[in-house]
Amino acid sequence: MEYSEKVMEHFANPHNVGVIEDANGVGEIGNAKCGDIMKMYLKIENDIIVDVKFKTYGCASAIATSSIATDLIKGQPISEALKLTNKAVVEALDGLPAVKIHCSVLAEQAIKAAIADYYTRQGLDPELYVGKLDDCCDLHDHH
């Protein structure tokens, strides 16, 4: 198993790490038992993601996927962020080892969870916009 330079770069110096105090969409996915948890903070104004921050507990690829996924959605409209697939995350990192693909799914799901939270706070049914979210440990079946 070997990580691409891009993965190591994002792991060593991850972008957008931290907390947004006045976030209006927060999503957390994964659990400690599985060994990875991602928490995304979104600041959304006029359907645009104006700021995004994350906290991640997990392996190098979990941290790197969080970092690149936040880069990819920053400044984007919600509709674009919802289109972000785990495949796009993997490609942006120049690939991930097969056993680490689930980390990219986790990043996609964490963003969706944060957007779902945004809709819930707006008094809207998130499932209409975001669909159903996967449970974390099932994600590991992607191995």
Partner: peptide
């Protein structure tokens, strides 16, 4: 998480090992 820990140690020149899932 152990893998992150040992890769960061590696960046500091320390060879270590972990029993984490990753």
């Amino acid at each position: 998480e152990g893998e992150s820990l040992l890769l960061m140690l590696d960046m500091k020149g320390v060879c270590a090992s972990s029993g984490s899932a990753c």
